[in-house]
């Protein structure tokens, strides 16, 4: 009975169970994947009549020649580089500290995790107010350190930094939880063994905790990079429906949104989605290759 082979009858029955999910995913996941790859090669697409003028690389050439797209890629990369390493390091440190705490540890976990469950749009409104150049908290606090008021949301030199700070704050809790789970999974025996061998706290940290935590660190970085590549909601809400002052916060997904929703250039938007896909794929492959060499499972 255990090693039963599938039969036509058992397959038909399974199909009934799979059917609801299959219908929806084929229609709204599988087909759209094929369709958006195809659409990225459309020439002169007419949305209303569904007429396609032919296939070609025009849309990718358009992206190649569009300074806005270059800006979007650049901003996205800066955003990823600004958010991910800081988030990984900060959340690791906080997780290590929380792991040492017994009293109130539940309370602290709740607090650190709170931003994760809150609506990005709602909290971006709050940050918009925090960043207010005259009455905002940020400039008020910075004033204690003698920093002159900064136009966080209207100065193109600072607006991407404003977005990065908010995103780090929002994403910390999620990663702290993952690190805490990882720390919990480390067998206490390793620490005891290291202690018997005369390793001090710092040595135990470098030679036990860090290597055994590397799968989580890897996971958190991959998740972080992929998530940050797709940043959109924060920008739309923080800059009230604009890509920041002087397009300083224009990212790839924001570009996709603009081409698609405000300029009706569907094929160009689809092409930018394809570029996003390959960028993410590239990062994932590089990380998989790297982890095979350096991550200890």
């Amino acid at each position: 009975m255990i090693n039963e082979k599938p039969t036509i009858k058992s397959s038909l029955k399974a199909l009934l169970y799979l059917l609801p999910m299959l219908v929806i995913t084929v229609m709204f996941n599988i087909w759209p994947i094929i369709s958006s790859f195809l659409m990225s090669f459309y020439k002169d697409y007419n949305f209303y009549t569904d007429e396609v003028g032919g296939l070609g690389f025009d849309n990718f050439l358009y992206l190649w020649n569009d300074p806005d797209f270059h800006l979007a890629v650049r901003n996205t990369l800066i955003f990823v580089a600004g958010v991910v390493p800081t988030t990984v390091i900060l959340s690791l440190v906080i997780a290590l500290l929380l792991n040492q705490i017994k009293v109130f540890s539940g309370f602290f976990r709740t607090v650190y995790f709170l931003p994760f469950v809150t609506s990005t749009v709602a909290i971006a409104m709050v940050w918009n107010w925090i960043y207010h150049s005259d009455y905002g908290l940020m400039n008020y606090f910075l004033g204690f350190f003698g920093v002159h008021p900064i136009n966080w949301l209207t100065n193109p030199h600072y607006s991407l930094l404003a977005l990065i700070i908010m995103s780090i704050w929002k994403g910390l809790g999620f990663n702290i939880i993952l690190f805490l789970v990882g720390l919990n999974n480390i067998d206490k025996g390793y620490y005891n063994a290291a202690e018997i061998d005369g390793a001090n706290a710092l040595q135990r940290f470098w030679n036990v905790t860090i290597p055994l935590l590397s799968p989580i660190t890897f996971l958190v970085s991959v998740n972080g990079i992929i998530g940050s590549f797709k940043v959109f909601d924060q920008i739309f809400a923080l800059f009230q429906g604009t890509p920041g002052p002087g397009k300083a916060d224009l990212t790839i997904v924001y570009y996709l949104y603009q081409k698609f929703y405000t300029e009706y250039k569907y094929p160009v938007a689809a092409a930018s989605g394809v570029v996003l896909f390959f960028l993410i794929l590239l990062v994932t492959l590089v990380q998989m290759w790297y982890s095979r060499k350096h991550v200890h499972y």
Binding site: T25, M27, F28, N29, I30, W31, P32, I33, S35, S36, M39, F47, I226, F229, K230, F232, V253, L256, F260, Y266, A269, A270, G273, V274, L276, F277, I280, L281, T284
Partner: peptide, 17 residues
């Protein structure tokens, strides 16, 4: 495999559908 695809790519075809 489909889980690797960024959801933002699916927005346009889904909107059309």
């Amino acid at each position: 495999g489909t889980m690797m695809i960024p959801g933002e790519m699916l927005i346009i075809p889904n909107f059309v559908t």
